[in-house]
């Protein structure tokens, strides 16, 4: 029999995540992620195809409207490739945040009946978005071939920026998850918030499109550095490390605040879900 002893007592104040405990429950995290992925792809004929069709369709529409009609510049690159490289980063972020935000509500049954570190719930939702990202990367590489955009060694930097993007998603997602449990109508705020967020991120337009004197506003966007970094790495442009630095700083703050708020709110979840 295991001799480890747990002490249960009222929780005061704000504390950070218990990493040791999280590690002990790592299999659960994996199981929940794979469950979501499996469920997504089972019983749907579209299944995997959805991960392909959705970004491609968005790309086509944006190319026609913004690239074609509005004639938004794309930094010397073919517009479809330009917009797709932004979209794949953005889609990952917005899907992860949206899924995290509502994850606790849907897991209500489990939360009120079994103990496990609750933060696993929003974390597990990121798994599905990661799979979609991987599929989108393949499409992007194909597109690059079609449009004759050369591959450069810079591509190896992509995982770094992806991790950064993921950390921001975790920071925002866990905070949203905790808030949505207490204030149910946040569920409706999330899609709206994400829509606005997309327009203040250079996905459909390059950063250079924004007049110099307003660019600093965009730099406050915590995912700016990561999105630009991913795009630059794929398409052979120079990475703007200053932007990455700013994003990193903001991301760290978001992560710390988001997770601490989650842990603080966690003790009430079972009571109010």
């Amino acid at each position: 029999m295991s001799t480890e002893t747990i002490t249960i007592r009222p929780r005061q104040g704000w504390r950070s995540v218990d990493f040791a405990e999280l590690w002990r429950y790592r299999e659960l995290l994996l199981a929940l992620s794979t469950r979501d992925i499996k469920v997504r792809y089972k019983q749907t004929v579209l299944g995997v195809a959805w991960a392909v069709i959705q970004p491609l369709t968005a790309m086509v529409v944006f190319t026609l409207i913004f690239g074609g009609l509005a004639k938004i510049p794309s930094d010397g690159l073919p517009y479809p490739v330009f917009v797709f490289s932004g979209l794949l980063a953005w889609n990952f972020f917005s899907a992860a945040v949206a899924a995290s935000g509502t994850s606790l509500l849907s897991a209500g049954g489990m939360i009120s009946k079994v103990y496990f570190p609750r933060i696993i719930v929003p974390l597990a939702t990121i798994g599905v978005s990661m799979v979609d990202f991987a599929v989108a990367v393949i499409i992007l590489l194909v597109l690059m071939l079609i449009y004759g955009v050369p591959f450069t060694p810079g591509i190896v930097l992509v995982p770094i920026f992806f991790v950064g993007l993921m950390l921001t998603a975790i920071g925002v997602g866990t905070w949203l998850a905790a808030v949505t449990v207490a204030y149910r109508d946040f569920r409706f705020v999330i899609p709206f918030m994400l829509q606005i967020w997309m327009y203040v991120t250079p996905v459909i337009y390059p950063l250079s499109f924004i007049p110099e004197r307003f660019q600093w506003l965009l730099k406050l966007n915590p995912i700016l550095g990561w999105v630009e970094g991913i795009r630059a790495s794929f398409l052979g442009r120079a990475v703007q490390w200053d932007l990455v630095g700013i994003s990193l700083a903001i991301t760290v703050v978001l992560l710390v605040v988001g997770i601490r708020y989650f842990e603080h709110a966690e003790r009430r979840f079972a009571d109010i879900i």
Partner: peptide, 28 residues
């Protein structure tokens, strides 16, 4: 409270070993 599903307002509990609870069948 013993299952750590909800935190106590006062007091302290020490539990030795792995705990499993059957509060409802089929969660998960």
């Amino acid at each position: 409270v013993l299952s750590r599903i909800t935190t106590p307002t006062t007091g302290e509990i020490k539990v030795r070993g792995r705990v499993a609870s059957l509060l409802e069948v089929g969660s998960g």
